[in-house]
Design a protein around this nucleic acid. Sequence first.
DNA 1: GTTAGCACTCTTTTGTTTAGAGTGCTAACA
DNA 2: TGTTAGCACTCTAAACAAAAGAGTGCTAAC
Lengths: 353, 353
Amino acid sequence: MEKLDDRKKKILQLIIEDYISTAEPVGSRNLARKYNLNLSAATIRNEMSDLELLGYLEQPHTSAGRIPSVQAYRLYVDELREKPNNLTKSDIEMIMSSFNDRQKSIDDIFKATAKILSRMTKNVSMVLADQDDTAIFRYIKFLPLDEKHAILVLVTDNGHVDNVTIDIPKGMETRELDYLANRVSELLAGHPLSDINEEILEAVHTNVAEDKVLFASLLATIRRMGRTRSKQKVFLGGTKQLLNQPEFQDVDRVRGLLGILDEEHVVRDLLNAGEDSGLRVTIGSENKFTGIQDCSMVRATYRLNGHVVGTMAVLGPTRMEYSKVISVMNYLHRYLQSIFAAENLPMLVREEE
Amino acid sequence: MEKLDDRKKKILQLIIEDYISTAEPVGSRNLARKYNLNLSAATIRNEMSDLELLGYLEQPHTSAGRIPSVQAYRLYVDELREKPNNLTKSDIEMIMSSFNDRQKSIDDIFKATAKILSRMTKNVSMVLADQDDTAIFRYIKFLPLDEKHAILVLVTDNGHVDNVTIDIPKGMETRELDYLANRVSELLAGHPLSDINEEILEAVHTNVAEDKVLFASLLATIRRMGRTRSKQKVFLGGTKQLLNQPEFQDVDRVRGLLGILDEEHVVRDLLNAGEDSGLRVTIGSENKFTGIQDCSMVRATYRLNGHVVGTMAVLGPTRMEYSKVISVMNYLHRYLQSIFAAENLPMLVREEE
DNA sequence: GTTAGCACTCTTTTGTTTAGAGTGCTAACA
DNA sequence: TGTTAGCACTCTAAACAAAAGAGTGCTAAC
């Protein structure tokens, strides 16, 4: 691919930015008039013609202006766009006030992130919360409830608690329950929850010969807890923002995309795809997923102590305000990192819902 | 309002049903041809003219057919529609399979309800879960975590558990924590969580002179738990179903309605409005809320032991399959009642998320 | 290398016509 | 008196045609 000279770059940049803000194909005459380059429409026409030949511009039809190609957006994102594009004060205030509000559980933080992200970028946002499946079993304990019921709580190393109410088998005494809990705790302590599979549970079973029914339900519970814990949670924001985009004035198109976003597993796949190397922009057909190949996605992962805790993304038309989106995501990214770092895990308030 | 004779009723019913299924204004000629009444188009024309005069029909313009008025729908829902309209076997199977799937938390049940409701009625569904704010404080307890942290769990009469991780004040011993928990538990036991206000907490404070910092955070936690518990939760389903409705082919209209549904408090108000007397149909302008006055809503509350535990509703165009919607809601209603009755509260698996 | 000019293309807008559906009214019929 | 056929009339939606507007490519001149 040959290098573009500065003038071509400048013109291309203007075309892209004009198209991003108007959603209309941009023509030479208009471009010349609007931004006062000291060039005539004819000259620009020639340049545009070149840019089209080089694959940066496309023409919907002969008598329309031109629109940027995926290749053009790529160049724009990587090189042309003005990098800093700092957020305005009011933007930042908006973010802060949305977060500062009140005590938030970790889920609430993600939820708020999705909301802010969509509101500020005017696009669909997606946030994936990777449940911490490295949580390590610490102990279980029975809490008394009434004569017939008790609460089984499972405590993990990072201070998360899961609980279920169980039936106390007839004739079983508190002492026995406690003994059972101790034995099981001893046997399972130190195992990552995700590791507690049938095999290990079977081993525990043979080791602890106790009331069959209770024990079975106990194991089932522990298994369920492990499973639940490791599920990735998806938060979707601002799907209705789509309706404000000119490219989604067609109800059928909206339906198509919304149908896709409705499937949680698809969204999960979307967010999980590719390596999780910081901020990543995927433009139009660069995208592997059918159905969103006329969209762009900006994605970022956050980490805590090296491992991924979450992924956020903005999805919208290829004609997207990349600079703004990237700025917002960068800011949110830094902000969340700081929250996570500060509220280090055991201190996370885990609000039951 | 004068009574309609049988023939008028029959004709009105047919017009309504035809309009419901086609979304097109229905004309006399078509009506005569489609359903073989032994009447000519002209006769029907006369009857329709009468019905219009009586306020049951409206004409978008002179040369179009006629469409039912709110008054007509009202009559239809109250009297004209065929009552039993049982669900098909496949409908019921669909419902059962959606529920039977796997162990569900109470939230999951509501979530599934919203999903099923929207899928089967092809309209937006809303489910309001009234959190059980009659939950009664039973006791709190500290569970050890590490040297610096402990988990505070709060147990209520119905077996729900809330928890937070707290910092252990320097120098405080486990014994002291336990003592504190016991004292506080004694003082608060039996109070409904919703009742635990500043006053009571203050009383506890003066009664138990202990570590200031810990105590303050303890009280804050209890207060927060009470607050969280009493929040009503809203589950929305099938908002994208809107896009399939002919009346929502206009993106602006979709945006309008979606904007309203986006506001959780609006949805809450919608569902809370009016008395909670079983099943209730609100048609078009009967509705008090601006923005949905060209929609109809079918709403039902479920109760357990006399008090309301939840509300579900279907929202769609006035041209709605009332019979179908009502059947589905009735069925779901009965089904959920049975679930709630069976899984009586202490047995509800409360899945932490 | 840049630009003005011009013919040409294609879409969008606007206006006009036509076909179709439905109505209301009148007169005839059972 | 209720029902029906017939017909003139109204209005919309679809089809078609013409005009306007935007943009291009090319050529020739600067």
